[in-house]
Lab assay of single mutants.
Amino acid sequence: APRKVEMRRDPVLGFGFVAGSEKPVVVRSVTPGGPSEGKLIPGDQIVMINDEPVSAAPRERVIDLVRSCKESILLTVIQP
């Protein structure tokens, strides 16, 4: 079942996760003590960023979407 995860941007750590460059977009790592800790799990597949589906989106679009979130971000993720 999809999970909705909302995180506030940390001034130092950002959102505190690293996503892979393949499709679908998969969470590779979560920064300890960062905003994503306890919310995202490595292996989570990101299916939506805010209200935009990203399963088939180019990597550049995913990066732009994350960067455009100055304060908070809403991710919809699934464990494949």
Rank of each mutant, 00 (worst) to 15 (best):
G20V: 11
K4L: 10
K23Q: 11
P24V: 02
P53V: 13
V54P: 00
M48D: 08
C69Y: 06
V66K: 02
V18H: 11
G16A: 03
L65W: 05
K70E: 10
R67I: 06
E6Y: 14
S72E: 15
E71I: 05
G20N: 09
R28K: 14
P42K: 08
Q79M: 07
R61C: 10
Q45N: 07
M7C: 05
S72P: 04
E6L: 13
K39S: 08
R28Y: 07
E22L: 04
E60K: 13
P80D: 04
L40V: 06
R9T: 04
S68E: 14
A19N: 04
D10L: 04
P32C: 10
V12S: 14
P32M: 11
P80T: 10
S72T: 13
E71Y: 05
V47S: 08
I78D: 13
D44Y: 02
R67Q: 14
D10S: 08
A19P: 12
M7S: 03
L74K: 15
S21N: 14
G43T: 03
P2M: 15
V27R: 00
T76Q: 08
A1Q: 02
D51P: 01
A1L: 08
I63Q: 14
P11E: 08
T31S: 14
P24R: 03
K70S: 11
D64F: 04
V26T: 14
R61K: 13
P32D: 09
S36T: 03
G14L: 02
S68Y: 09
I41L: 15
E22R: 06
D44M: 06
I73T: 06
I41R: 15
D10R: 03
S72A: 09
K39E: 07
R67G: 12
P35V: 04
P11V: 05
G14I: 02
R59E: 11
V62Q: 02
F15S: 02
P53Y: 09
I46V: 13
L65H: 06
P80R: 07
V18R: 06
G43P: 00
R61W: 09
D51K: 11
V18M: 09
P53K: 14
P80I: 04
V62M: 04
P24N: 04
E52K: 10
D51Q: 12
T76A: 07
D44F: 00
G33A: 10
M7R: 00
E37D: 12
S72H: 13
L65F: 08
L75S: 03
V25E: 01
V47T: 13
I49K: 01
F17A: 01
M7A: 05
M7W: 00
T31Q: 12
P42R: 07
M48S: 14
V12A: 14
I78K: 15
I63K: 12
V54L: 05
L74Q: 15
Q79N: 11
R8H: 10
P11M: 07
L40S: 01
Q45D: 03
V54Q: 02
G34A: 06
G34N: 00
A1N: 15
R3N: 04
R61G: 07
D44N: 03
I63L: 15
S29W: 05
S29Y: 06
G38V: 03
I49E: 01
I78N: 11
V26P: 02
P58Y: 05
T31V: 10
T31G: 05
G43D: 08
V77T: 05
I78L: 13
P32S: 12
E6G: 07
S29C: 07
G14Y: 02
D51Y: 07
P80C: 06
A19I: 15
A1P: 02
V26A: 08
S36E: 01
E6K: 14
I73K: 03
M48R: 11
M7K: 00
S21L: 11
